[in-house]
Simulated scan of single mutants.
Amino acid sequence: MHRFKELEIWKQSRVFCKDIYIVIANFPKSEKFGLISQLRRASVSIPSNISEGTSRISSKDFSRYLEMAMGSCYEVETQILLSNDLGFLKDTELIALQEKLTSIIKMISKFRSTINARIKN
């Protein structure tokens, strides 16, 4: 069992979620039930799945929650790209978010690989 508050992937994904909330504050009000809602939900899902996974007894279950967090990362990536395409997100904001998200994806992937290796042994 892991202490989620000590996990760097949880810390970084929480900061990333806050960053998403900050940039979407400038989106048009007409997107309240569109991209704003989707980005909030998907970005919150990343640290939430990591923390929920730590409560699971088996490493296999924890790995599954990390997989769900990874899916949310890719969902957010698609949504920020669309936001940029629509002019809601500046290129500089997109690049900064993509860099942070790529780092989180790499950390989750590496951590998940480590857990899966332990399951096989």
Results as ranks from 00 to 15, higher is better:
F62K: 10
S43C: 09
R41H: 08
R41P: 01
G34R: 14
S30K: 09
S45R: 02
I24L: 06
I24V: 11
S63E: 13
S63Q: 14
L66P: 06
R56C: 04
V44S: 07
I46W: 07
S43F: 04
S58Y: 14
L39M: 08
A42Q: 01
S45Y: 01
E31W: 00
S30I: 05
G34W: 11
G34E: 10
L66V: 12
L66T: 12
P28A: 11
R41T: 04
S51R: 09
S37M: 07
E67H: 15
S30P: 00
V44G: 04
F27H: 04
K60R: 15
A42W: 01
Q38T: 00
V44I: 05
F62C: 12
K60N: 15
S55G: 12
Y65V: 09
V44D: 03
N49K: 09
I50F: 04
A25S: 13
S51W: 03
I57H: 14
S58G: 12
G53L: 08
S55W: 13
S51F: 06
D61V: 08
S51P: 01
I50S: 03
V44N: 05
D61Q: 10
I46S: 06
D61L: 09
F62E: 10
I50G: 03
I36M: 04
N26R: 11
I57V: 12
L39F: 03
S51H: 05
R56E: 05
K32E: 09
R64W: 09
S48D: 02
K60I: 15
P28I: 05
F62R: 14
I57A: 13
F33M: 13
R64N: 13
P28C: 10
K32N: 10
G34A: 15
